[in-house]
Design a protein around this nucleic acid. Structure first.
Lengths: 335, 335
DNA sequence: AAATTTCTTGGGAGCGCTCCCAATAGCCGA
DNA sequence: TCGGCTATTGGGAGCGCTCCCAAGAAATTT
């Protein structure tokens, strides 16, 4: 049996319009009528048709989530899983749904067209990893509301949520220096990702504040993966660092493996600090000192920002930096 | 400027109907006309309105993906990330989209209503972990096409895709026995998940085939997490196992940690085999022998099955078991 | 040459909802 | 008692598309 507004209306002796008002919590309905209609709705388990609704209203209550596919390797990092969880959870709480788009190069053109012109979604959350993403300009040109998870360096007018990567990194490195470490090395993220650049900036600033110069031999570029961290650490080893700041826990894990193989003790010979505080960080050997970033809150905040943006188009751009937390465990040699 | 079928029709000198035919690749269009229309469509970057389309046709070309929220801990396992990737990728290839639903208990009622009655999606993929899921009966009652990722034990009529967990586990344990191990222990998954039960069944069968009885002291229940594996191993240690089959790599990782702390050498004192072949398995200490399951293909297969099911409702239920692959590394003591 | 079939096209009738305006009923104060 | 208010309700007009039927043109048959 086909059940729609009209059917509910018939069964509760009112008009389609009144049922619509009840469904949408319009206050202009008599309290008794409202109850009567609601009862019928519950009885029939009625749910208004989403397509008809968005066709008539122009809103879908669906948010798009775009995640760069990259190599599948990136997915080994729990970061995305937790982010997705935060986003989905906030969407639930705000009665929205999430549509997921993995940005695979071969589908990108179609993806952008769908995102922008099909009317499927009201706004987009972009987990922005790459600096040269063609998606952001397209979104701006087409006035599609969107929020970046991760700061965007060049366009000042975009809305974003990010962890305070620079200060987080700064705190970690400052701590290592305060402990008396002399040769602090770093494994950075890829240079084309903002998060990597920001953490590196924090590293540099901490050195500067102590009057130390940046020794290029003590800086190795990684790719946020375990394997990348392992290789980077092998490049650093000949230069005898006595401390390491790795720009992600996955890379720190790889570095620990390289150190172990080389017979260096952690933290005695080399103190190690990571970034992220992924679930396994506390269970590494030794437990990893790290900078915790609130990944889940990154997601919920992005959703809230985006929904505001959809409700009030043209409001001033908003940028949110969430504080990180320095978590001391064994690997830095001070607890 | 508002651009729709009618507008494209006007600009290319044909009717709305003809444009619709072109958009939908209907063969009944003159080749010349088709080209003309396509040119205009490309020029204006036209994308048909999704809401109108599904309102008129009753199809949305959107698949729902339901993942049990559980404790966030589950998300630390790369399994879901890879599965999502497989599903999203296959959806792209078939010109569908994915809508993501994390099954949080407090939203479950609304979720089920939306899933079933809002017409938002054409079908559902359920990453079925729990035996007693109330979603499955609801889907059956409402004739919503759906596919389970993970075998369903009780309802024979449901469609599912799964890894061949039992044979995979059997192969691993048979290998350990063939190497001459006498006291093979296992850390199982939670008893309310089918994958856990199936892997345990494979373990038992391998023992039986060698005429060995199941020693309850050598069986500990875990929860597919690293921490769970660690605790389970501690319970097993007093019973002096000389080999371990862990029902997931994450649990194997925890077990390795417990063994290391207890001063047991792997593989000399205890040979260890995991299950999954997650990206980090090869980088554990020692590299983990494991049963690789094709997680990504689980996802793509589920999508293909579901789309078939949507196109041909009422076809015979289909069940697919994908073969696993035994991957030998250091931790089992034979390579 | 007429009749039939095939190819191609156009237009009407919805799909189920929201939005707007008009209509009715009930209420107030003068 | 009457005009003007407000509270509540009903119904028409789309939103942009698909589906179906019919019509004309072109091609084929007899």
């Amino acid at each position: 049996m086909k059940i729609n507004l009209e059917e509910i209306a018939r069964r509760s002796g009112v008009s389609r319009s009144t049922v619509s008002r009840v469904v949408n919590d319009d206050p202009n309905v008599n309290a008794g009528t409202r109850e009567r209609v609601k009862t019928v709705i519950r009885q029939l388990n009625f749910q208004p048709n989403a397509a008809a609704r968005s066709l008539a209203s122009g809103r879908t209550r669906v948010l798009g989530l775009v995640i760069p596919q990259g190599v599948g390797a990136l997915f080994a990092d729990p970061y995305f899983a937790i982010l997705i969880q935060g986003i989905a959870s906030a969407c639930n709480a705000h009665d929205h749904s999430v549509m997921l788009w993995l940005a695979e190069p071969e589908y990108e053109r179609r993806m952008i067209r769908q995102l922008l012109h099909s009317g499927m979604i009201d706004g987009v959350i972009v987990s922005s990893m790459l600096l040269d993403d063609s998606l952001v300009p397209a979104l701006i040109d087409n006035q599609k509301p969107f929020v970046l998870v991760g700061r965007h360096p060049s366009k000042p007018e975009v809305n974003y949520v990010d962890s305070d990567n620079e200060n987080g990194a700064w705190a970690a490195v400052a701590h290592l220096l305060r402990l008396g470490r002399q040769r602090v090395a770093t494994i950075t993220g890829p240079s084309n990702m903002v998060a990597g650049a920001d953490r590196r900036a924090g590293f540099v600033r901490a050195l500067r504040e102590r009057g130390l110069a940046l020794d290029p031999d003590l800086l190795a570029e990684g790719d946020f993966t375990e394997a990348g961290g392992y290789l980077a650490m092998q490049r650093l080893l000949p230069h005898k660092p006595d401390a390491l700041f790795a720009a992600s826990d996955m890379m720190a894990q790889g570095a620990l493996r390289a150190l172990r193989e080389a017979g260096r003790r952690v933290p005695e010979d080399v103190a190690v600090v990571g970034f992220d505080d992924i679930p396994t960080a506390a269970r590494l050997e030794p437990p990893l000192t790290t900078v915790r970033q609130p990944i889940q809150r990154l997601g919920t905040t992005a959703v809230e920002l985006l929904i505001e943006l959809i409700d009030q188009p043209g409001s001033a751009p908003r940028r949110v930096l969430l504080a990180t937390e320095f978590v001391i465990r064994k690997s830095c040699g001070a607890n």
